[in-house]
Amino acid sequence: MRQAAAEHILTPAIRTEDFRFYYGSHEALKGITLSVEQNEITALIGPSGCGKSTFLRSLNRMNDLIPDTRTAGEIWIGGKDITKPAEDTVALRKQVGMVFQHASPFPFSIYDNVAYGPRIHGKVRKAELDELVESCLQSAALWDEVKDTLNKPAGSLSGGQQQRLMIARALATKPDILLMDEPTSALDPISGAKIERLIQSLKTQFTIVLVTHNMQQAARISDRTAFFLNGEVKETGRTEMIFNSPVYEETKDYISGKFG
């Protein structure tokens, strides 16, 4: 275990080489070369339309589902270039979980929302599922609030609870990497702070890539920050470096709130 962890430090969890993304003829990502380290939180920041969400959604190939798009360049995850058409996207998405801006619970019970992924992927023994659901809800810091109401519809939870349920649901397929697309922007500050603490606690087990519009959030919880601008990574580095002594004028202007 320890040795495996040591090895991981040497290889980044995600490495992209000159990755380009096109919506039709529009080049939305203009050659992204970026590394995401194991068991770190990497924040992607930048103004709207800069490509950070497109980049995030390329990491588990969610963009495949948008017609008339294509990519160039490479994205290496777990020793494989996942941009290859032959790559098994279903397996990839099990390995790379995703949490969206708006919680979208299935219209089922709390229990079933978490159990659904593993069940469809063939795990059907009740005892095993019970255990998995409990551990995922524990990891998502939701277990104590819902352990007596597991059969209630997920829609009856509050917004913040639903978002934590979404995290538990993503954890249930046992991913290595978690992608989060503005996970707190639709929540009130208290629920948002809970999710932030949760994200920080999850990095011991997972590699996390976080898209956020909230500069304070990026500064508070991320280890590394990549500043996206007009489809390129303008600047990247340790978060304290980016926020305290950015190299570029644009980075400084963006994080100090001059545009965006």
Binding site: M62, R93, F100, S104, F106, H121, M166, T173
Partner: peptide
């Protein structure tokens, strides 16, 4: 659409997403 995306993101195929979600 968010329901479908949630299914895809869990590693369901398109058909699994349709039938199960």
């Amino acid at each position: 659409r968010t329901q479908r995306e949630a299914g895809w993101a869990l590693g369901f195929s398109k058909w699994e997403t349709i039938t199960n979600i």
